[in-house]
Design a protein around this nucleic acid. Sequence first.
RNA 1: CGGGAUGUAGCUCAGCUUGGUAGAGCGCACGGUUCGGGACCGUGAGGCCGCAGGUUCAAAUCCUGUCAUCCCGACCA
Length: 568
Amino acid sequence: MRASEYLIPTLRETPAEAEVISHRLLLKAGFIRKSASGIYTLLPLAHRVLLKIMNIIREELDRQGGQEILLPILQPAELWLESGRWDVYGPELFRLKDRHGRDFCLGPTHEEIITELVRGDLRSYKQLPLLLYQIQNKYRDERRPRFGLLRGREFIMKDLYSFDRDEAGLEVSYRKMFEAYNRIFSRCGLVFRPVEADSGPIGGSVSHEFMVLAGSGEALVLYCPHEECGYAANVEKAESRAVRPQVIEEPRPLELVATPDMRTVEEITAFLGVGPKNIVKTLLYETDRGLYAALVRGDRELNEVKLQNATGAVRLEMAGPETVQRITGAPVGFAGPVGLDGVELVVDEEVAFMVNCITGANRADAHYRNVQPGRDFSFDRVADLRLVQEGDPCPRCDRPLVSARGVEVGQVFKLGTKYSEAMGLTYLDEHGVERLVVMGCYGIGVTRTLAAAVEQNHDEHGIIWPVAIAPFTVVVVPVNVRDEIQVELAGKAYAALRDAGVDVLLDDRAERPGVKFKDADLVGYPLRVTAGKMAGNGLVELRVRKTGETRLLAVEELVEAVRAFLQA
RNA sequence: CGGGAUGUAGCUCAGCUUGGUAGAGCGCACGGUUCGGGACCGUGAGGCCGCAGGUUCAAAUCCUGUCAUCCCGACCA
């Protein structure tokens, strides 16, 4: 491929709209252009990267027995009504009508349509297990698209669905996919970590996310630094061992104290001269299952996902000031569990251990001191509600957890029978008994993986592609296109690499050398071959983008040197 | 959804306060000189100043509405 004939519209200045590094670099280096918010065109360079990532995915899924198909993106509402998600999915679902007024949506995921497909053709246990996947556009009307390719409204996703006879079969499929994902992201040259995750609105029980580690990542993960333990989880899922108070005090009698205008934990601690660990925060939530009061220690934050799981609520929202006033009889800031009626109490494990704590008194400008959980208020449920923080004890081995940021590029779920039950996907076992199919689903954000690779691999000059997914492995640069010797030698190097099966681009543009070098660094080809001053002696320069390491060698040695680099 | 900001040439931006009919740098085209880290000189093309109303003799500029884009937040009592 010749750069003079190839569309690589690099920019000298970074478009003002881009904030996140992958977004900036992909725009600047000529990989993508924006069409609308969260919707991008992928130019030739990005398309090449995408194809490489997709091929790695294909090879690894096929190795595990996956079969590729293509499912409709445009899907009839009936299927979504059948699964119940037409109403549950909310405004993120792109909905549209056809000319007859029938409802359709653009698929944000494909559980419904694939369940319908398999339902139509699955009869016998002999047809199971089945692993079907597709690599295709998905649509989600994100409430706030951002970060370029990292959170778009239109994106490319690989999704695989597994169909098994029973839980044991699902376990096998799940392990296969877990293994495939490890291999896929390793082969892409990315530093990543699988973590335990909440299964969220897709439903199901067990789930893992694959995180590409990058400081700019949206997702926070907590992991145990002790390798033999290996605990790692998304912050939404992460657990920590509940810490009991070190000093066990004698319970004292309940006492009402005036706390004029003291609403926040900081204000109370300062006013009463106590630590935040002595305070109980009472958080009121409105949910589709009614009102809940969640209690966590004053130094803790509530993990809403855990509350959601503890209550079984689908929608969950903090109560507004009017509701707080109505339920507690006090303005916001003075809610407490003592004498609180009309709401269900969910108490964090740590709160259940507390002695002589401070809570709101459900009246303006007052708190209770020496509140005793169980004595002064009874609670309906104890649960883990805490948002885990760095330094909290590992739930498995007690060592302090460490946090890291990452970009979620893949997630695997055990769906179980959620969809097969809702949509009647069954088979006959060897005894002629009708049984529900047990499903799993496994996604990889392909365009997001591309962006995550940039987030993780760049420097101040531009992108540094991992070799396996680089748009071109090598760029050959004749320094001066009017120097026939240089041009000829560059042509020779290019042809040799091309014939050796290397992905190589010849930068034959009539640009000054500085421009070509800057572009090469910006685009991020792993290797650059320069035909310049030493061309007269048949020597070219081989430069490694990542390290800047360069060496002179004869053009005849080039193919061997490049191969050695690729194998290293 | 709430808040903030911004829409002027392909990109980055100035001009707007104080209305008088549009500018710079980069990029692009052509000519010339250059050629190992985003060269220089000259010539030139390129703009319903986001869109729609309004005020005015006159609007990029003032007013109203609207659309788009970006950023922050989405409730820790």
